[in-house]
Design a protein around this nucleic acid. Structure first.
Lengths: 184, 184
DNA sequence: AGCAATCATGCAATAAGTTGCATAACCTAA
DNA sequence: TTAGGTTATGCAACTTATTGCATGATTGCT
């Protein structure tokens, strides 16, 4: 059960509503994790039931009411313990790799297109994450310990992304050098 | 539904039993995908029911009987169509990143240990995949088209792995430079 | 005036994936 | 000889994740 711990982690510093969590997930942990709002709401209910989170309804004018969640002491302890627990390597299970195994003349153009699109998406992500890095993690050595961990995760994401870009270029160049069967 | 397509992809070249598929998954698609045998058996039943695979029971002496699965024409067509369908980026959802967000003096030593372990595991994987690369993909430009796709996927896995190693070293060196709170 | 987007939460049904167990025969090494 | 590993498939119960829908006010754009 890892999503619940990701949620608790996101609540370490700020109390948030489900809606805010879903957005925070997209930027902060977003490089490594994605969760739909439905999933987040479901997990929040469970965590609150288990006493790991406290609810607090915040009435808003001109906006629907929201429910703020806050880590309880029990939640903090559970999270701290969880770090010592086992965790195994999780493969990305990305369709792209499976599709590549099916490369053929029929889908060559399509897959090249998909690669170009992935490349563009990754560029945009990297742009965002590099900005965060420069703004908040310019001097990693002087960060407090916990932030150093966040920095290292961010760095892993950036490096992964840059590696992916380079691979895309290589793959695209290889694919563009293939003669289509209809050409002489 | 991507596992089913990964299974069909694995059956493109060879007919296999569930057991053989599970093992093939660990080596070939293993860099990008993992599936338990239960999951594979379940999917095989479904795919056979849908007419995408054919079953054939092979009686063996000195071994339990096995059930060979073969792609049907319908299966091949479904797979070919699927390649043109949408696919989105899938995050790895690896606990490691979430754990890093929780870095503290209490778990610093533990997380360093986990990093070292991950690094070792990745080294072993890379060793295996580099061997496959040298043996079967030494001259990628002269491969038939489909194998070029497999090569590109393999290459992505290798590059990703190498990047991860480099990141691990950087992370470990950063973490080892932290004074523990009990030392002067 | 109307339309899309944002804020905010949720239910219900289904699909996908995990965990634990069960069976059964052979092979190998201590 | 007996314990552990490999080959081989499967059920049942459970958790996790996805898909599709519903609601409803406000804000900003055209």
């Amino acid at each position: 059960m890892a999503l619940s711990h990701a949620i608790m982690t996101a609540l370490l510093e700020d109390d948030m509503s489900g809606y805010e969590l879903a957005k925070a997930f997209d930027v902060s942990l977003g490089f490594f994790w994605h969760a739909s709002h439905q999933q987040i709401y479901q997990q929040l209910h469970k965590l609150a039931e288990q006493g790991l989170l406290d609810k607090e309804t915040v009435v808003q004018r001109s906006r629907p009411d929201k429910i703020l969640y806050r880590l309880t002491e029990a939640g903090r302890e559970e999270l701290a313990q969880w770090v010592f627990g086992p965790s195994r390597v999780q493969e990305a299970k990305d369709d792209l790799w499976v599709k590549l195994y099916n490369l053929s003349e029929a889908n060559l153009a399509h897959l090249s297109g998909e690669l170009r699109q992935r490349r563009d998406e990754m560029m945009q992500r990297l742009y965002l994450y590099e900005k965060i890095r420069r703004r908040h993690y310019a001097e990693p050595d002087s960060l407090p310990l916990r932030r150093k961990g966040v920095y290292l995760a961010l760095l892993a994401g950036i490096r992964q992304g840059e590696q992916f870009l380079a691979w895309c270029d290589e793959a695209l160049s290889m694919l563009s050098n293939i003669d289509s069967p209809s050409s002489p």
